[in-house]
Amino acid sequence: MSHTDAKELLAAVQGFLRQSVLPQLEGFDAYTTRVAANSLAIVSREIAARDDILELDREAGSRWLGPAAGASPDEENHPAARALSLALRDGRLQVSGAFIDYLRERTLRQMAIDNPRYSGFKQARQRWPELAAAAGLAEPSNS
């Protein structure tokens, strides 16, 4: 049997907060404890999905700014997204349909990590079903 992995630890702490701590609290402390448990849920989802967003950014960087903008694969701070953002600011990047689609897919993926219950997430998946499906985030058809 291996040691507890990071995702298991996160799940265990979330369970502890929600089932053992939260019932004993009220008011501001209860609210903050819910925020704490939600934050751990975000971290769990990010561990599973972050590499996909970095890959998407790298592809976009090399497509619109050239291969050099892809940057190192293990960089955590989304260097390609920043380079693209500066190009957009300085008018060096022509906004095309494909570029907007990249932004939509990226935001769908980020939203799935940060807050999949946000109203705009549902709307976006309905409006852009092909992009959502490509990102593995299609709305269940019976919902």
């Binding site: 925020v35 939600n38 980020q110 940060d114 705009g120 976006a124």
Partner: peptide
């Protein structure tokens, strides 16, 4: 405080809203 740190993850809500608002207007 945790509250401040956690609000940082609501940035993507604003991004989603902006993309929806700007659809067909870019």
């Amino acid at each position: 405080t945790l509250e401040r740190a956690a609000v940082g993850r609501r940035v993507s809500e604003s991004e989603m809203d902006l993309l929806l608002l700007l659809e067909d207007r870019l």
